[in-house]
């Protein structure tokens, strides 16, 4: 299997709230740090990719925000205009005005049109070799298949015309596992794991896009080493020794014990979900574990920490 960062186009998806953007941001950061000219593109117009680099809001025009790292956010209308001028060589007059409006209109009704313009722009950047790697903070699990299958959908809907002619080379890029891969982000919880498994099944059935890796985000560290949990259990259940410790630290330690118990049970239930995930996924697909960050949950510092963790998990 192609090394993750040696691909050209990586789509990062996941259920809402699992940290999809964080992972896309740190993956791109790591790639740039390792010498690759990297473009990171935010597809959903939430506009918070910039927060993960603590930089000014990203726009459709790529901007270098760190050495070898460019960032942009997708704007389907701007993308269409660019496409029309570059690919179809349409005169400017026709690219603005009624056509743009018509596009907006058709795009809000015809499925696949907005998606094809998005995917088309990304594939075009790959084709033109402007970057070594493009990391896409893509749609959430519910919509990613629609995004990735947009060229097929267009092929079915549009029988002739220039748009249809454009879908062939896009499919070549998307379907090549050494070029394109999908990274699914999950957390060790019931719903994110279920959605990840549903998605990987749909990915196999409905697309030819390769599942490049699954990132498990916010994994709690193991609290106790071998045999230590039993000691903790005995301490928690023994009033005598507890009184002894309370006296030594001048006050009750009940909150400390409760917090430890919360961690132990949370970790236990999360481990069950992790095991369900591990058991159901093709063993050749790398599972990358990202630690739960206690001290910073967002911002550049968190991006750096997760980039380091990704680097370690990828064996660099």
């Amino acid at each position: 299997m192609t090394d993750l960062l040696d691909r050209k186009l990586i789509f990062v998806t996941g259920k809402g709230g699992v940290g999809k953007t964080t992972i896309a941001a740190s993956l791109a950061w790591l790639a740039a740090d390792r010498g690759k000219r990297t473009l990171v593109c935010e597809v959903d117009a939430k506009g918070n990719l910039a927060d993960f680099y603590e930089t000014a809001p990203t726009r459709f025009e790529e901007r270098e925000i760190a050495p070898r790292l460019w960032a942009m956010s997708m704007d389907t209308e701007a993308s269409l205009k660019q496409y029309l001028s570059l690919q179809l060589k349409l005169p400017l007059m026709l690219r603005i005005g009624p056509l743009a409006k018509m596009f907006d209109f058709v795009a809000s009704a015809a499925p696949g049109v907005r998606e094809i313009v998005t995917v088309g722009k990304l594939c075009w950047e790959v084709k033109e070799k402007h970057y070594d790697l493009i990391v896409v903070d893509a749609s959430a699990t519910g919509h990613i298949v629609g995004q990735l299958t947009a060229p097929q959908a267009i092929n079915q809907l549009v029988q002739v015309g220039l748009v249809r002619q454009q879908t062939g080379w896009m499919l070549d890029i998307l379907d090549d596992p050494s070029t394109t891969g999908l990274v699914v982000v999950a957390t060790p919880a019931e719903m994110p794991v279920s959605e990840t498994l549903d998605l990987t099944a749909r990915l196999r059935e409905e697309t030819n896009v390769d599942l490049a890796a699954i990132v498990v985000n916010r994994v709690l560290p193991e609290l106790f080493g071998r045999g230590e949990e039993e000691v903790f259990e005995r301490l928690d259940a023994s009033p005598g020794p507890r009184d002894q410790i309370d006296a030594a630290v001048a006050g009750p330690v009940v909150s400390l014990m409760r917090a430890a118990r919360l961690t132990v049970t949370m970790r236990r239930s999360r481990t069950e979900h992790l095991e369900r995930l591990r058991g159901a996924i093709d063993p050749n697909v790398p599972l990358l574990y990202m630690p739960y960050l206690f001290f910073r949950s967002h911002g550049l510092r968190a991006t750096h920490q997760l980039a380091d963790a990704l680097s370690a998990e990828l064996g660099y």
């Binding site: 609290l223 045999g227 230590e228 000691v231 020794p241 400390l256 917090a259 430890a260 919360l262 961690t263």
Partner: peptide, 24 residues
């Protein structure tokens, strides 16, 4: 002794319980 362990292991457990509380 009353927790059927040695001082070294107990010290580790206490340190982990403390660190866990501070993290959360």
């Amino acid at each position: 002794e009353s927790l059927h362990t040695d001082q070294e292991q107990l010290a580790r457990v206490l340190a982990e319980v403390g660190a866990n509380f501070r993290n959360f």
